[in-house]
């Protein structure tokens, strides 16, 4: 598309402004983590490394981080398996109700978190607890997996639509079994889509608050739940800023990696 120089410049300005708006609050978080003021007044009243020092000692935050990583891996693993299976079915077969599937899979992410949250919570209460499964990490993973499936599904489906099924047919015509074909033909084609989808699914689970609130046992504290309960405690709130600052910086690595591995530059789809 041949755009005028003015249009290009205008778009570049929009991009720059957009990024500025995205990053100013993150900058505020990072600055606040060095602010002596416990309630983050602006401009900062002084520079301190106290919060960083105390964050290093904070066992609660470390445990919560570990819990979040476990929950994220658990939910992502389920999502990878289920999302992949479903996307193959939808991409390679025609069957009755295929349209319904596409709505069903998007429902957990399209319905507000609080609806998903209270639905799962009351279901666990009435069906799982009587058989001895109480709220805990397991229920968090179950809950997160419901809305992570769609992410993997979308990524793999998009890839499958671009790679023709005829390659798989050729492989099987040449005598390769279903599993061999999957291993040597199909899997390599969707590998990067799986990675990108898995990463986004993990990110979604990692930052989920509302569904987690309703599905976690009180003993299970994911990082967002830890943040929620500590942001309101003046002695702890500045430490939350430190944790967030670390997350912001650290998250560049996986996002960048996904970019490198992924074939399409979008680095995955939501």
């Amino acid at each position: 598309m041949r755009l005028s120089r003015g249009a290009r410049a205008a778009l570049a300005v929009a991009m720059t402004l957009g990024l500025a708006v995205i990053y100013v609050p993150l900058g505020v978080v990072i600055v606040s983590s060095f602010n002596t003021d416990k309630t983050f007044g602006w401009p900062p009243s002084g520079f301190t490394l106290e919060w960083w020092r105390r964050a290093v000692d904070n066992v609660g935050a470390r445990d919560a981080l570990a819990t979040s990583v476990k929950a994220g891996f658990g939910a992502t693993a389920i999502a990878l398996v289920l999302g992949t299976l479903l996307s193959f079915a939808v991409a390679r077969y025609r069957f009755f109700g295929r349209d319904v599937v596409s709505i069903l899979v998007v429902l957990p992410i399209a319905l507000p978190g609080i609806v998903t949250g209270i639905a799962l919570s009351s279901a666990i209460q009435t069906t799982l607890r009587p058989i001895g499964i109480d709220f805990g990490l397991f229920t968090v993973i179950i809950g997160h997996a419901t809305f992570c499936v769609v992410i993997v599904y979308n990524n793999v489906l998009a890839r499958l639509r671009r790679t023709s099924g005829s390659l798989e047919e050729a492989s099987m015509d040449l005598g390769a079994g279903v599993f061999t074909t999957f291993r040597h033909v199909t899997f390599p084609a969707v590998r990067s889509a799986l990675f990108a989808g898995g990463l986004l699914a993990f990110a979604l689970s990692f930052d989920e608050v509302i569904v987690t609130t309703f599905t976690a046992g009180a003993g299970v504290q994911t990082l967002p739940i830890w943040i929620l309960s500590n942001l309101t405690r003046p002695n702890q709130a500045p430490i939350v800023n430190v944790v967030a600052a670390v997350l912001i910086v650290a998250s560049v690595v996986p996002v960048w990696l996904a970019q490198r591995v992924s074939a399409d530059t979008a680095g995955g789809r939501l």
């Binding site: 978080v29 990692f206 967002p224 942001l231 967030a244 998250s251 996986p254 996002v255």
Partner: peptide, 9 residues
């Protein structure tokens, strides 16, 4: 990247 920074924060 901002998707990874806590929504609450």
């Amino acid at each position: 990247t901002p998707l990874w920074a806590s929504y609450l924060v």
